[in-house]
């Protein structure tokens, strides 16, 4: 990377940290991930999230979370975490039969 005006790396200390933004698309709806914003603190993160991700009435409520505070599974976890759930068909309603007479009434 060639820079005509190179600055020392330390100036990144003034780069605003990243926040993940979640919004609630409507009353009673679960929150969805929208994306991220940079902001110096929580209040500005909320305002920046509002100005970035709610320009078209997308949401009625916003959460912001510092990106580095999120704990997530890794791809290596995925087999141990999620495959077992695939072996439990009895957790799903389709696993069970309904008497024909009841089905008809619906």
């Amino acid at each position: 990377m060639s820079k005509s005006n190179s600055k020392p790396i330390s100036h990144y200390q003034n780069e605003w940290p990243l926040w993940e933004v979640f919004y609630q698309p409507g009353n009673g709806k679960p929150f969805e991930h929208a994306g991220s914003v940079h902001a110096p603190d929580a209040e500005m993160a909320l305002q920046n999230a509002r100005d970035t991700y709610a320009r078209r009435n997308e949401g009625i409520a916003i959460w912001v979370v510092p990106t580095d505070q999120i704990t997530a599974t890794t791809p290596e976890d995925s087999e141990a975490f999620f495959d077992p759930a695939g072996n439990k068909p009895y957790r799903h309603p389709q696993f069970y039969s309904t008497p024909r007479a009841v089905k008809k009434r619906k």
Binding site: E15, G35, R55
Partner: peptide, 29 residues
């Protein structure tokens, strides 16, 4: 501006830093 922001955000998921990316085009190549 919003679209630039979404795109920088998604680039940052790859471990890039927005400020560095910005400096790459305003001072770099």
């Amino acid at each position: 501006a919003g679209h630039g922001l979404y795109l920088y955000s998604s680039t940052e998921t790859l471990g890039a830093r927005r400020q560095e990316l910005v400096e790459d085009y305003i001072y770099g190549t």
